[in-house]
Amino acid sequence: MVRIYLAQYEAAHGREKRQTEHLLGKRLLYQGLKEVYGIAPEPENQVVILKGEHGKPYLKDFPHIHYNISHTEGLAACGLGESSLGIDVERIRPFPDRVAERVFSSAEKRRMKELPQEERDSYFFRIWTLKESYVKALGCGITVPLADISAGADPNAFFHQEMLEGGYVLSVCTFEGEEVQIIKL
């Protein structure tokens, strides 16, 4: 099972924004480690986090526990599971058309052009979060051009996507097809 911990927060700006998001992501990770695995990462028993070749974080002393953190304007998410996973959360908002041109496959661009204008922002972030969750689950980050990836094209990848209250979209990718449980804090 993949457990996704969610927490809303008051969005900050500048340097404070990054620090707030980072600390909240870690707090969600630590809460999940304690609740699911009985690991209490107190200051005297700090959990060591290392990064893989492309920057994907992992727990040095707990290689069987996989996690991934994502955050956007006012919402942080942390996924925990027993196999590789990737998550991405975004607040649906207007986006620059040039970004879709750069990161969407030909089929995704065609589909977007077929949609009514009022549905395009939602479509963009639904596809974007699927792609982000996929490359994060692979552990390669955005070293792979996103335009070369079609959401859902890998038969070994399993996706879970939810539209969340407040205008957010959450996507989860695994390679085991586990059940996804969302825990809102």
Score class of each variant (00 low, 15 high):
100 A>V: 11
56 K>W: 05
9 Y>M: 15
6 L>W: 05
119 E>Q: 13
38 G>M: 07
76 A>K: 14
159 F>P: 01
134 Y>I: 12
2 V>R: 00
110 R>T: 10
116 P>L: 11
90 E>V: 10
146 L>Q: 06
76 A>E: 13
121 D>S: 12
140 C>L: 07
143 T>P: 04
64 H>Q: 15
72 T>P: 05
127 I>T: 00
141 G>Q: 11
65 I>C: 04
154 D>S: 10
149 I>K: 03
96 P>W: 03
38 G>N: 06
50 L>K: 14
82 E>H: 07
178 E>V: 09
82 E>S: 09
21 E>D: 10
110 R>Y: 03
139 G>F: 02
58 Y>K: 00
103 V>N: 02
143 T>I: 01
54 H>E: 01
156 N>A: 14
95 F>E: 08
117 Q>K: 07
9 Y>R: 03
161 Q>P: 12
133 S>C: 04
113 K>C: 08
115 L>N: 04
164 L>I: 15
18 R>C: 07
102 R>P: 08
7 A>V: 04
105 S>G: 05
62 F>A: 04
53 E>M: 12
157 A>G: 09
104 F>L: 05
130 L>R: 15
88 D>W: 00
24 L>G: 07
84 S>H: 06
56 K>I: 05
65 I>T: 07
24 L>V: 13
139 G>Y: 00
184 K>R: 15
31 Q>A: 13
146 L>C: 06
116 P>A: 15
183 I>S: 15
53 E>K: 14
14 G>D: 01
133 S>E: 02
104 F>N: 02
63 P>Q: 08
70 S>H: 13
35 E>Q: 08
144 V>E: 12
135 V>W: 03
67 Y>Q: 00
120 R>G: 00
